[in-house]
Design a binder for these strands. Sequence first.
DNA 1: CCACAAATGCAACAATGTTGCGTTTGTGGC
DNA 2: GCCACAAACGCAACATTGTTGCATTTGTGG
Lengths: 152, 152
Amino acid sequence: MASASIPSNPADLLRAAGIKVTPGRVRVLQALHGARQPLCHGEMEAQLGVDGEAAMDRVTLYRILDSLVACGLALKAVDTRGVFRFSAAGAQRQHANHIHFRCTDCGGVFCLKAEPPPPPTLPEGFRLRRAEFDVCGTCDRCSGDTTPLVPR
Amino acid sequence: MASASIPSNPADLLRAAGIKVTPGRVRVLQALHGARQPLCHGEMEAQLGVDGEAAMDRVTLYRILDSLVACGLALKAVDTRGVFRFSAAGAQRQHANHIHFRCTDCGGVFCLKAEPPPPPTLPEGFRLRRAEFDVCGTCDRCSGDTTPLVPR
DNA sequence: CCACAAATGCAACAATGTTGCGTTTGTGGC
DNA sequence: GCCACAAACGCAACATTGTTGCATTTGTGG
């Protein structure tokens, strides 16, 4: 097998990003890539404990996550409860060109066909970093059966 | 002047909502209505201190905010730093037909001229509750002076 | 005006995230 | 393979934001 020009295993990703390859970082990156949705700090701690290895220090985990975000290998966001959630960068690339629908009932995320709207023009001096169309409501299953969902 | 059928002062709003009218709640509701953007707990504490009256107990403020949310007089959301922000219910109506730009640096919210994009069509059975165009980056002041903002 | 439930103030606690500092470890150079 | 050094780690302590328990005060209906 020839050497991969597009690195995909955690160690290579870390090397390519220019930060040291440590067991902790490899484990965290693996966990992020294996996750089907962004993980918060606590979930990640639990996840890592399952590996059979000793649980990682809380602060170290925070620092690893920060370093991954800083070098672009991970993304940081905040959920509705105000907790930071981390996801592997690149995981969202496949989710680039369509809109997501979030079910507020079951928490599920669904991909819509529609293209995201173009970013708006900003006033002088403003810099756009991210523009996201946040669409939420209830999915087909959750809409159907029970919840009247406070129409007020 | 006839009795108002649409109550608008804090005390009447509280009465109409069916919860006790207390000085604290009136003050908080006034602050919320006077605010040009959602306030976090700390900002509200500061705001209330300015009134000349004694600052309110931290826990009491939390509970007042919760009670206002519970009876529908206030709305609770979470900002990018993971902090809860509260706004007067109805206050968002005047903010309905344009896009908001959120500065990730100073936390400020700015109103853009552009109209919000039309809501996407949903698959069968899905119910839309909210569609919001979330635009963020750095405002003119924060973009200008200091931060290189990790261009990497 | 009274009684009672609701609201408040205080203290303590809980969850999440950060800082300082001494020790360990990955990495480049030999 | 070995060394030195900076980066990463582990630990302890701290900071911020939000919550819970409980005794006291206060708004409201009668």
